[in-house]
């Protein structure tokens, strides 16, 4: 019996410590972004671009497919319901709003957490266990400035871009079903989409994606830099980072949606 409480207590303490550590890493990252440049120690621009390329450009294809299929699925799932009300045209608005507000940012975030966050954890984890991180420190190069900041910046810049792209593709997916399967007039579909879609929908989605980007980068880098125990440790860091990112993304989505909901955005 005592064991159960010990385990639960240990788990809670461990989680609490990790949360504090991640927040400390976040503060460190902010320091290097905002204070570092004034001390002549800015993150390298090439490093940031390299990461942006990896995070953004090379993720376009999977984000394209995820967005497209999500749009198609929502249109197909909702069409029969709306049809029974004689309101099949509202598929356009439903697809547009649900994609931009919710599914675009969240699904893009999850896909990128799986692709990019995991890669960060694995790469930094390998660097950690092969003494490369210590080598950086030994050369008087701060690992946070050198490894985490470029990845963090790349994600909070590129994830919103990918999200807007996913939004557009998702709406296009809905359009394909609406026009070719539900036989809605093309001009009418587009018109209805923009009648329901407001800038607020897109903006709240983009705000979410900035937060998700930060979460993915911090979690991936945190688990990477705290890897212990060789190849096994790298594997563990990678999986833990994905699971943690997923949970935190969903949690942050819930919190942000509530904030937008109650502040009437």
């Amino acid at each position: 019996m005592g064991n159960i409480f010990e385990n639960i207590g240990g788990g809670v303490i461990g989680t609490g410590r990790r949360i504090i550590d991640v927040l400390a890493l976040f503060v460190d990252v902010l320091y290097w972004i905002f204070v570092g440049p004034f001390k002549g120690k800015a993150a390298k621009r090439e490093g940031i671009f390299e990461q942006m390329l990896f995070v953004g450009v090379k993720s376009i294809l999977i984000v394209f497919f995820v967005g497209l299929f999500t749009g198609i699925v929502i249109a197909m799932q909702t069409a029969p319901q709306l049809d029974s009300l004689g309101a099949v045209i509202y598929v356009a608005g439903l697809v547009a709003v649900s994609i931009t507000r919710e599914l675009g940012p969240v699904l893009t975030g999850l896909v990128i957490a799986g692709r990019v966050g995991a890669a960060f954890a694995a790469e930094l984890g390998t660097m950690k266990v092969t003494e490369q991180v210590e080598a950086l420190e030994g050369m008087a190069l701060n690992p946070v400035r050198f490894l985490v900041v470029p990845r963090f910046l790349a994600l909070i810049i590129m994830l919103p871009c990918l999200t807007i792209f996913a939004d557009a593709v998702g709406i296009f997916g809905g359009y394909l079903i609406g026009v070719f399967n539900l036989n809605i007039n093309s001009a009418l579909y587009i018109d209805t989409t923009f009648r329901f879609l407001t800038a607020k929908d897109v903006v709240t989605g983009v705000i979410k994606s900035v937060v998700f980007g930060g979460i993915i980068a911090l979690i991936g880098c945190y688990y990477g830099l705290n890897t212990r125990g060789g190849a096994e440790g790298v594997g563990k860091a990678t999986t833990t980072s994905i699971v943690s990112s997923f949970i935190l993304i969903i949690l942050a989505d819930c919190v942000l949606t509530a904030v937008f909901f109650f502040s009437d955005m």
């Binding site: 390998t126 660097m127 003494e131 490369q132 210590e134 080598a135 030994g138 008087a140």
Partner: peptide, 20 residues
């Protein structure tokens, strides 16, 4: 201060620790 010192020394690691 530590970084200023570190610039004056070099270290060879057991596994060489080259950047992959």
């Amino acid at each position: 201060g530590l970084d200023a010192l570190r610039k004056k020394f070099g270290m060879l690691f057991q596994s060489a620790a080259l950047f992959d």
